[in-house]
């Protein structure tokens, strides 16, 4: 491909991406060094905002919680997604129905899905999950105030929302696995588990990686789910980084753009660290392709 052609083809996309995304990033970095309100120029304060964020224990614990949440959701979503993909792949006539049902939770807006989800656990709205639990035990689970029950509920909600994506991608991967590979494994006498672990999974490595990237990106910035699900997030240590940003900078019509931007910059850095393996992979692949 000629150079000129390459650039003609690629420029509109670069223009849109860089034009609309690079300016915001530049602005974010600029604001992170300033004391600034909406629509004002602000005053330069150097690294003050960074010091403020980094010395706040709440920021540290929100980073820990978010990273932990991200990693555990990622594992659950991949394992469960794979099992579901295998099962759905074996379905016949029921396949479109089952796929359609499983897809729904992925396409509903987070804030709406999370609110519906919270009604299942909130006695003030019927709390059907509590009724079911009540059949087995007299113990009231305090889903919204106690740290671990709340974590589990939040985690369940995010898995609920992300599972369809994972299953879909892994299902697509499974369909690309040549029949011979599976057959060959059978002839070797490998058990079911072994066949999946050693033959099929490695051959859809790429898909698993793709699910991992997207899950990391999306869970690391979880925000709107927590509004209905974790009203006590600050008290019980279940504040995500994005929620921390919101609480510190923008709640109650606050406009601490400087501090908010600092946390955004730091989030980008955390994200980059978590993406290093994928970045290396892309570099290698693009060079050799």
């Amino acid at each position: 491909m000629r150079r000129r052609e390459y650039w003609i083809l690629i420029l509109p996309s670069i223009f849109v991406m860089f034009g609309l995304l690079l300016i915001p990033i530049y602005r974010t970095i600029e604001w992170s060094l300033k004391d600034v309100n909406y629509g004002e120029a602000g005053t330069f304060v150097g690294l003050d905002n960074y010091v403020r964020a980094l010395t706040d224990p709440r920021f540290g614990s929100s980073v820990l919680f978010t990273v932990g949440l991200t990693l555990s959701v990622m594992v659950v979503v991949i394992v469960l997604g794979y099992i579901l993909a295998v099962l759905v792949n074996n379905l016949g006539k029921m396949r479109p129905l089952v796929l359609g049902i499983i897809l729904i939770s992925y396409v509903i807006p987070n804030v709406v899905g999370a609110t519906m989800f919270s009604w299942l656990f909130d006695g003030n709205f019927g709390g059907v999950a509590n009724v079911v639990i009540g059949w087995f035990t007299d113990h009231d689970v305090l889903w919204f105030t106690e740290t671990w029950p709340n974590r589990i509920m939040v985690g369940l909600n995010i898995v609920w929302a992300m599972l369809p994506f994972s299953m879909l991608i892994l299902l697509a991967g499974l369909q690309g696995v040549p029949r011979e590979i599976i057959e060959a494994a059978k002839i070797d006498g490998a058990g079911t588990m072994g066949r999946h672990l050693h033959i099929i999974l490695p051959s859809i490595r790429g898909m698993v990686g793709f699910v991992a990237i997207i899950t990391i990106m999306d869970v690391l910035r979880v925000f709107d789910n927590l509004i209905p699900l974790a009203p006590n997030a600050v008290l019980n240590g279940n504040e995500t980084i994005a929620l921390y940003t919101y609480n510190m900078a923008f709640q109650d019509g606050g406009q601490e753009l400087g501090l908010g931007s600092v946390i955004n910059v730091l989030t980008i850095l955390i994200m980059l660290v978590m993406l290093i393996p994928f970045i290396r992979n892309t570099m290698k692949e693009a060079k050799s392709a």
Partner: peptide
């Protein structure tokens, strides 16, 4: 990839 992973606040404000 980096753009895709930006926090929404950083982009939208």
């Amino acid at each position: 990839l980096v753009f895709r992973s930006l926090p929404r606040f950083a982009v939208v404000l």
